[in-house]
Design a protein around this nucleic acid. Structure first.
Lengths: 128, 128
DNA sequence: GTCGTAATTGAAACTAGTTTTCAACTACGT
DNA sequence: ACGTAGTTGAAAACTAGTTTCAATTACGAC
């Protein structure tokens, strides 16, 4: 555990929304000025393997990352402010039985990404 | 609707698994020899907007595409042979209520990608 | 505290993937 | 057959991500 890695972790932990590698680099440099972009990539790779970070899949590319709690969970991202939260994913597991029956596949894994409007944007913005 | 586009569509329609842009280019060239890679990119973009093609999101990058039927559905990909199928996604919509209560977000969209073992691989391979 | 080793770092070079540019070409309605 | 708007492919430009390598750093053994 080195200073550069701590800087990346800290920037990720503080973020309220998924960050691209570039953004993360910018922010983490506040903690550790001579941090290299390469180290951000490498640190993310390690953290992803450890399950501490999740990649956020979006429409086109999938280049953003967010901190993730251990255990089975999914992310929901606000379409207005990009803020990202997690929720427990056990409900989804209940669906696998139905899906196995429908498709004939044996389901071994899944992931789900949700988009919505977060509570504070619901208050401030016009309700649809 | 031009010959190059037809070639791309045809290669996609025939594929039993998601294809990368390169693979698609290779296969579509069988129909239209001097097809440019750029055209494949452009055609995919158009088809994606029309909802005829879906991007398959995988562990690391998300670079494969598969034909998709219109309407709300999700993809499931076989982890052994990569074959990809679709299924109706109405079940998942039932979850949004529970998720809205849990997170406070208003859910406006989602997508789900599943991984599993397809029927024919289940037969041939050793059952776990 | 000092030493040694193995892992980590950052810069630069490199590769892969994707987009833009632009002149030539093609589909399609007139 | 003609005109026009949209499409095409090659090359160049660009972006994201990876590899290489010498210098640096963490950390356990002494």
């Amino acid at each position: 555990m080195t200073a550069p890695r701590r800087a990346v972790l800290r920037a990720l932990a503080r973020a309220q929304r998924p960050l691209s590698v570039e953004e993360l680099h910018e922010r983490a440099k506040a903690q550790h000025a001579r941090l290299g972009l390469v180290t951000v990539y490498r640190t993310l790779q390690v953290l992803e393997e450890l399950g501490l970070v999740r990649r956020i899949h979006e429409q086109g590319a999938c280049r953003s990352f967010a901190a993730s709690s251990p255990g089975h969970s999914h992310a929901i991202t606000c379409e207005r402010c990009d803020k990202s939260s997690e929720f427990n994913g056990d409900d989804v597991c209940l669906l696998t039985g139905a899906i196995e029956r429908k498709t004939g596949y044996r389901v071994s894994g899944h992931w789900l990404q949700l988009v919505g409007v977060c509570p504070s944007c619901r208050k401030s913005g016009a309700e649809r």
